Amino acid sequence: MASRVPIEPQRVDAPLTQSATFLVVSINHSRAGAVKTVRTTLARLADLSKNVAIRDLAASFACTVGIGSEAWESVTGGLARPAELRPFTPIRGAVHTAIATPGDLLFHIRADRRDLCFEFERQLMDLLGDAVAVVDDTIGFRYFDVRDLLGFVDGTANPVGTTAVDHSILVTQQDDPAAAAVAAGGSYVVVQKYLHDLPAWRALSTERQEAVIGRTKLDNIELDDAPAGAQAAHKTLATVQDDDGTEHSILRDNMSFGNPAAGQFGTYFIGYSRRLWVVEKMLNRMFVGVPAGLHDRILDFSTPVTGTTFFAPAASVLAGLDSD
């Protein structure tokens, strides 16, 4: 029997941290050698991470890299494409739209210390140089007791435990036999940057806010679902089941961000999943509504200004990108 090549996933399930940087870049193909520079940098990412993490081993430093659909072939040198990897498709509901924005690479940088995120990004950009152009660079922070800026606990539905997390977010060889050598141990990643209309949200009573979210604000207790055919809460619309009624989870590591002086308040959504269709179905339920026309009312107060899909291959795949 042929031996299997060891699969070392990236740290997509790293602990929730106090700080994060979400860096999305596009490759500057007009610059000679840009793709080679990117591949070399990604192949050396583990060493770069260790160089920063060693400064405080208790700070839970981690960096996850995602590769976008349009950049997959050039960055990987033609490795097999994961079965579900495709560009983010805009979702147009009757009232709100989930827009698509460009991005070839995602760097999800996180730690309990902001300076470690800063230092890693500095060293990373020194290596990439003008081989890339920054599309978006958002600094996130953990707000109070894991709440978003709307005041509600965020991430309650995340899978708990190593087995549950791995089952929800890591692609298996059986999931994608045609690209198993590349896809196994990887994860699909969807990011969206939401801006909140806090004055309008705060004008709602606590009871109305709770009806929108589907949980109590103070103690995070789940409220009963609305009757079939009625307006569903966010927690219901964000719950995805397949045709057999099996519920599928994703791993969220959302972060608050903002600039009070500029009147900017938001949530950076990042979802990791073993199956891209799960995230896509969740967003379709939110923006189109169930039934159609009854969209997620959180969208009346939170507007997405980005939307991009990536695939985070195993660390062992990244390490081999500079082999030619």
Rank of each mutant, 00 (worst) to 15 (best):
N254F: 12
T309Q: 13
E207L: 09
R285C: 10
L283I: 06
K217G: 04
A226F: 02
I250L: 12
Y194H: 05
Q241S: 13
G245L: 06
L204S: 02
R275L: 12
I221Q: 11
V305Q: 03
Q264H: 10
L195M: 14
R285W: 11
G271K: 05
A203D: 07
A262V: 08
R285P: 00
T267Y: 07
D219E: 06
D219R: 09
R208G: 00
E280Q: 15
T303S: 13
H248M: 09
V191C: 14
D253F: 11
Y268M: 15
S273D: 11
A203N: 07
Q192F: 06
M286W: 07
G271R: 06
V288A: 08
V240S: 04
H295N: 14
Y194I: 03
V278R: 09
D300N: 14
F287W: 10
L204V: 03
I221S: 03
D244E: 14
E207W: 00
V190A: 12
R208P: 00
T216K: 03
I213L: 02
A211L: 08
M255R: 15
F287P: 10
E280A: 15
V190N: 07
I213Q: 01
Y272H: 15
F265K: 05
F257M: 04
T308C: 11
K193I: 02
D253W: 10
F257S: 04
T308D: 01
D244N: 15
P199K: 06
H234A: 05
N259L: 13
Y268G: 05
T206G: 01
M255K: 15
K193G: 01
G229Q: 03
R215E: 00
S302P: 03
R215N: 00
Q241A: 12
I298T: 13
E207S: 09
T267V: 14
T216G: 01
V190I: 12
G214C: 00
T206S: 05
M286S: 15
H248D: 04
V212K: 01
K217E: 13
G307R: 09
Q209R: 14
D243M: 12
V278Q: 04
A232L: 14
G263C: 08
P199F: 07
P304G: 06
N259M: 10
Q209G: 08
D219T: 07
V290R: 15
E210V: 01
V240Y: 04
D219P: 00
F311P: 05
A211N: 00
D244W: 11
G229H: 02
G289L: 10
K235Q: 11
S302K: 07
W277M: 14
Q264Y: 08
F269E: 01
L299V: 06
Y194P: 00
G245M: 07
F287V: 12
L218R: 06
Y194G: 01
S205A: 03
A203S: 12
L276D: 04
L251K: 11
Q264D: 07
F269N: 07
D243T: 13
T306I: 06
K217A: 11
F311M: 07
S205I: 02
T236G: 03
K217Q: 15
S302H: 05
L204T: 02
T236M: 05
P199A: 09
K281G: 05
S273I: 11
V305H: 01
